[in-house]
Write a protein that binds this DNA or RNA. Sequence first.
DNA 1: CTCGGTGCAAATGCTTTGCAATGTC
DNA 2: GACATTGCAAAGCATTTGCACCGAG
Lengths: 146, 146
Amino acid sequence: MEKQAAYAILTDHLKAQGKLRATPERFAILDAVLQSQGHFDVEALYYRLITNGVKVSKATVYNTLELLQECGLVSKYRFAENTSRYEKAFGRPHHHHMICLNCGDIIEFTNDRLERIQEEVAAGEDFSIQSTTIQIFGTCSKCTKK
Amino acid sequence: MEKQAAYAILTDHLKAQGKLRATPERFAILDAVLQSQGHFDVEALYYRLITNGVKVSKATVYNTLELLQECGLVSKYRFAENTSRYEKAFGRPHHHHMICLNCGDIIEFTNDRLERIQEEVAAGEDFSIQSTTIQIFGTCSKCTKK
DNA sequence: CTCGGTGCAAATGCTTTGCAATGTC
DNA sequence: GACATTGCAAAGCATTTGCACCGAG
């Protein structure tokens, strides 16, 4: 089950860093992230934690999300707004986004050729890739029809 | 000369919108943008304007940059930080960025195949593209060598 | 002369920080 | 016990807003 694997990744990361501690808050936040669907912002995640009876502060949510990002369990995005958006990255293939500027809908897509060309381009500059983001802004089919 | 063409684009846009006025501030900011090299943030542009003796407020800079974005004279980006970055879009081909997470350097690149595949992907979803952004995060060659 | 635009400063909203209290190791 | 981590509230920043004044049309 994915939960155990994700826990293991986090635990390993904590140990690997030497001084990081395994606190209940960190695992509670990881839980909440695993249960999430699609994209979420800190506000929504915090709200879900609180209403589920988990006592955490927003500061801890921010800190932990950064930690989870470091071990590849969540991805952080910044579309057009001034809020950061996150999404669970565990057990999901690397993918990109089409963002509808009208209704805000986000369509995910994957494309091997895009990945390969990006690698080629980076290699040409001796640039070593850590992560890539492709965002296509425009109007989705639903909004075009209206 | 590019300045005249850019002025014309802005003037046309103002007229086209019906109620927008041609104020000296708007053209002064456009001037400053045209003189810019690479990416800049509001702070830097504002500072350049002030030190050049142009009296504008930051609010106007924000407003005008949005206006210039609407008529395609500047592009707005959001890399990882919490500041928006802009760059002059006039007379430049559509391009993308590799961002070095170590030194912050930004390498620009263009690639026709990437553009074409993006179009294909969007077409497959009946999504009509307005703009696209590709960001490759990682380590640049200079930093790798160190 | 009318209303859109500007400057200023205050307000907003996301994110970070400082510090005492807490609990992991 | 030592010290990383937490919670809380205050501080920071980038960006936006409200409003009186100004000036383009």
